[in-house]
């Protein structure tokens, strides 16, 4: 079994309206050191069995559904979970 953590964020080149609003709010709380906020999504996938090509299939899932690569970047971490 694998546990996969997928992170999706807007690309660097794409303005993030939500991130901007949160940054302004942090500034209004006097956290002036905050230079940028990027808001993204975090997903946890549990992959059953002894699936082969886990990485290739996760990559495919990200490209086809989990991220929209026109505006988003993604990265993931794959952890093997030993069942007890």
């Amino acid at each position: 079994m694998y546990k996969v953590k997928v992170y999706v964020t807007l690309k660097e080149s794409v303005l993030d309206p939500q991130g901007n609003a949160v940054k302004n709010s942090l500034h209004s709380l006097s956290y002036n050191e905050v230079e940028e906020v990027r808001i993204g999504k975090y997903m946890e996938l549990t992959i059953g069995g002894s699936t082969e090509n886990v990485e290739k299939r996760i990559e495919e899932m990200c490209e086809r559904l989990l991220a929209n690569t026109v505006i988003e970047d993604y990265r993931y971490e794959i952890e093997e979970v030993v069942s007890q």
Binding site: L10, P17, I71
Partner: peptide
């Protein structure tokens, strides 16, 4: 249509949210 790739580009949240 954008997600299906029948048209190019993508949608973001409105700039004023």
């Amino acid at each position: 249509l954008l997600e299906a790739g029948l048209l190019p580009g993508a949608m973001k949240r409105n700039d004023r949210l």
